[in-house]
């Protein structure tokens, strides 16, 4: 553990970009937790007479078509966006790694079925599949989460399967087997903890994807319900105002969206360096 911490410190100091990403990630978490208290205005309060105001000190990001404060909405949206991403990724992580571990551990038919199902899902254009799921189930936050989880599932299943099958015959697994552990027990206590690090990388990268995915769904009208503030839907709505000169509506939530995805992607990279010392150069 101490070695890992040392290595982490090494990677972070060697890689200022990753350090920055972790810092920004902390900020996002803070915003997600304390957002509603930080926001200067009620993100839902309309004020038709104050609509479409350009950024001022009172409204640093301007106001939208109903006179709502864009700054407050961008801040408050953090919770929902991270919420969607975290839940979707958690869901596909749990189910995907369970499927992948069993496939990798037992092999045979389990492996074949899991493999074929992941292949089938991956053969779909993923965004279109998500569109279809949301269109079929109706657009609510839960369904966006399910759709995002479904399209990410195969990636976890694959990583978990490969890592597990590599470790299936490893010494510590054999040792546990000889000492009489049941398959499920071995999987949970010996194999699973060992495949966690590579999965972490996948998680971080997927968080970014999940946010982009939800935003894309919002753009074609299959996103979160109004009046909830969500970055993607704010960009989609704001996009129609760019030509008429109200650039702030799309720019600020767009920037927030981009920064968040950016941060997750850089973190994913950094984590990869952390867990895979062989990549260290």
């Amino acid at each position: 553990m101490l070695r890992f911490a040392k290595h982490a410190r090494y990677v972070l100091s060697e890689n200022p970009v990753t350090a920055g990403a972790f810092l920004f990630f902390t900020l996002l978490i803070l915003l997600a937790v304390f957002g509603p208290w930080i926001a200067p205005h009620d993100p839902l309060a309309t004020n038709a007479s104050n609509a479409l105001q350009a950024p001022t000190w009172a409204h640093p990001f301007g106001t939208d078509h109903l006179g709502r404060d864009v700054f407050s909405r961008v801040i408050v949206a953090t919770r929902l966006d991270l919420g969607i991403a975290v839940s979707a990724v958690a869901l596909s992580f749990v189910i995907g790694s369970a499927l992948g571990c069993s496939a990798g551990f037992w092999g045979g038919w389990t492996d074949r079925i899991v493999g074929r199902v992941s292949d089938t899902i991956m053969a779909f254009p993923l965004f279109v599949l998500a569109m279809g799921v949301v269109a079929a189930l109706g657009n609510s936050v839960e369904n966006i989460i399910y759709a995002t989880a479904v399209i990410n599932l195969p990636f976890y299943a694959r990583v978990a399967r490969n890592e597990t099958s590599l470790r299936r015959e490893a010494g510590f697994v054999l040792a546990a087997r000889i000492s009489g552990g049941s398959d499920a027990r071995i999987l949970a206590t010996q194999v699973f903890p060992n495949i966690l690090p590579p999965m972490m990388v996948q998680i971080s990268l997927n968080m970014g994807w999940a946010i982009l995915n939800a935003a894309g769904l919002s753009f074609i009208g299959l996103g979160v319900r109004p009046p909830a503030a969500e970055w993607g839907i704010m960009v989609a709505e704001g996009a129609t105002y760019i030509v008429s000169g109200e650039w702030w509506l799309a720019l600020f939530p767009g920037a927030a969206l981009m920064l968040a995805v950016f941060c997750f992607n850089l973190m994913g990279d950094g984590l990869r360096d952390l867990v895979d010392p062989s990549r260290r150069t």
């Binding site: 839902l44 309309t46 038709a48 078509h65 109903l66 109004p226 009046p227």
Partner: peptide, 10 residues
């Protein structure tokens, strides 16, 4: 309809 709905909701 969306802005209308939001205003009515409020």
């Amino acid at each position: 309809q969306e802005p209308t709905a939001l205003l009515i909701q409020e």
